[in-house]
């Protein structure tokens, strides 16, 4: 049984239907990839899985670990083992060090936090307000850090490779691989897919276009198709049976 199942989910945001009857699944320890052009609804789907209140599931169900979580608030989903690394997280006037203490006291240990801070080179950011003046790479590393502190069963990673240099992409990919090695199922959203070159345990891949899943298959194969045809062509092919 998959760890996470999204079944025919439609998502409404501020009165607009953004995701239309999307279905996908994520297995334990596997990295599932969701690709698509900007504005196709990838992030919206992720936020609805996390349960952010603006993202209303108006159709379908979300099943996590055998439990229907469609109507649960985000904080309960987080406590059950779902974590989200935001693509554009808000700036919050809370010191990173203070927040990481709060999160690690809920889910993990001070020791893990200390280790990750060293590994992800975050020590100099601890006394700074969260994401205030952080570079693109620092934001991505911080998001991954806070996600890993939650020791999630499922990690939803929203474009961890956008706006970061190639060195940082390699580092981030390394930590995503480690998360999966420890059994975390990962739903990785990526626009360009460069990060997939460094990802080890790829599972299924999906392409979302105009709010719909138009293509699925082994992630490497899906990435190859996207690279060869581009999203618009794939959408046309979908109409003709992708």
């Amino acid at each position: 049984m998959p760890l996470l199942e999204v079944k025919d989910v439609s998502v409404n945001v501020d009165g607009n239907l953004i995701v239309k009857k999307a279905s996908l699944s994520v297995n334990e320890g596997e990295i599932t990839v969701l690709m698509g052009p900007n504005g196709s609804g990838k992030s919206t789907l992720l936020y609805s899985i996390m349960g952010l209140s603006r993202y209303k599931v108006v159709n379908g169900r979300i099943i996590f670990n055998g439990v229907d979580i469609t109507d649960l608030p985000s904080w309960k989903r987080a406590l059950m083992g779902i974590a989200l690394a935001f693509q554009n997280p808000p700036k919050i006037r809370v010191k990173l060090g203070y927040l990481s203490e709060k999160i690690s006291s809920k889910y993990s240990s001070k020791e893990l936090a200390e280790k990750l801070i060293i590994d992800l080179n975050l020590a100099k950011l601890l006394n700074r307000d969260l994401h205030h003046g952080f570079s693109g790479g620092e934001i991505k590393r911080t998001e991954l850090f806070l996600t890993m502190l939650q020791k999630p069963k499922i990690a939803l990673l929203d474009e961890p490779d956008s706006g970061v240099d190639i060195e940082s992409i390699k580092i981030l990919a390394d930590y995503i691989n480690r998360l999966a090695e420890n059994g975390t199922g990962i739903l990785l959203v990526t626009h360009q897919g460069y990060i997939l070159r460094y990802i080890d345990n790829l599972g299924k891949g999906y392409v979302m276009y105009n709010g719909m899943i138009i293509c699925s298959g082994p992630a490497y194969e899906v990435f190859r198709k996207v690279s060869v045809y581009g999203y618009s062509k794939l959408a046309q092919m979908h109409a003709e049976g992708c």
């Binding site: 996390m50 987080a78 808000p90 927040l99 809920k106």
Partner: peptide, 25 residues
């Protein structure tokens, strides 16, 4: 709302999220 949502997505109730933001402030 965005700040609250962000913290709640990390497992904090709304009350806890407010408390964290106020403490940081």
């Amino acid at each position: 709302e965005e700040e609250l949502e962000y913290l709640m997505a990390h497992g904090f109730t709304e009350e806890e999220a407010v408390s964290i933001i106020v403490r940081g402030f």
